[in-house]
Computed example of a mutant assay.
Amino acid sequence: MRYNVIISDDDNDITEGLMSNGAYIYTQVPANREIEIKTDTTSVGSILIDTENQKTYCIKSYPVEGFISRAKIMQVDMETCKKEIINTQLHE
């Protein structure tokens, strides 16, 4: 399953990259704002984050089986991120 990762704030939606199983993307987001990270699957998955300056956020996504294609998105702690990212590759 492949899908676009979209960052939204009050001003606009920006497609940050294509995500697929076993891959990750790296991007910078505006500080001190509430942003929404979402996918463009048939059933949109999303998460809201209140961003802080100079902070790293790890967001995990995975496909969910069902009638329609969708991706589940969740924030994970840095320890989980470091353990799981070792088995993936940067999606460019």
Rank of each mutant, 00 (worst) to 15 (best):
M78W: 05
S61T: 13
T88P: 06
S43R: 09
I7W: 08
G66Q: 00
I85V: 12
L48F: 14
I86E: 10
Q75M: 15
T80A: 10
N32K: 11
C81Q: 10
D9I: 05
T15A: 13
I35S: 04
M78R: 12
N87L: 05
G17M: 09
R70F: 01
V29S: 10
N53W: 08
D77L: 09
I73M: 13
D77Y: 11
V76I: 15
E79Q: 12
K72P: 02
S8K: 08
V44A: 04
Y62P: 01
G45R: 01
V5I: 15
T51Y: 06
N53G: 03
N32R: 11
S69P: 02
T56I: 09
L18C: 14
G22C: 04
I14F: 09
D10F: 06
Q75L: 14
Y24C: 09
Y24R: 02
T88G: 05
M74A: 12
Y3F: 01
I47L: 07
V64I: 00
T27D: 13
A71Y: 07
F67L: 01
S61R: 00
I6K: 06
E16S: 10
D11E: 10
Y57C: 03
G45W: 03
L18H: 13
H91N: 15
Y3R: 11
T51D: 04
I49G: 11
R70W: 00
T88I: 09
M19L: 14
S43P: 03
I47Y: 08
Q89R: 08
T39M: 04
V76C: 08
D10G: 14
I14L: 06
I59P: 08
I85R: 04
I85A: 05
R70E: 04
I35W: 09
K82D: 10
Y62C: 00
S69V: 01
K83A: 12
E16A: 14
A31H: 05
S20I: 12
E92G: 15
N21S: 12
N87S: 13
V44L: 02
I6V: 14
S20V: 12
I85H: 03
T56C: 00
E79D: 14
E65H: 00
I68W: 04
N53A: 04
R2M: 10
Q28A: 04
N4F: 12
I37R: 02
P30Y: 08
G45S: 01
I59M: 01
S20E: 15
D10A: 07
K83H: 07
D11T: 03
L48W: 14
C81L: 05
K60G: 05
Q28L: 07
Y62V: 00
I37L: 15
I47M: 12
C58N: 05
I14G: 01
N32G: 13
S8L: 02
E65P: 02
M74E: 15
I25D: 10
D13A: 07
T41A: 09
Q75N: 13
E52G: 11
P30N: 08
N12H: 05
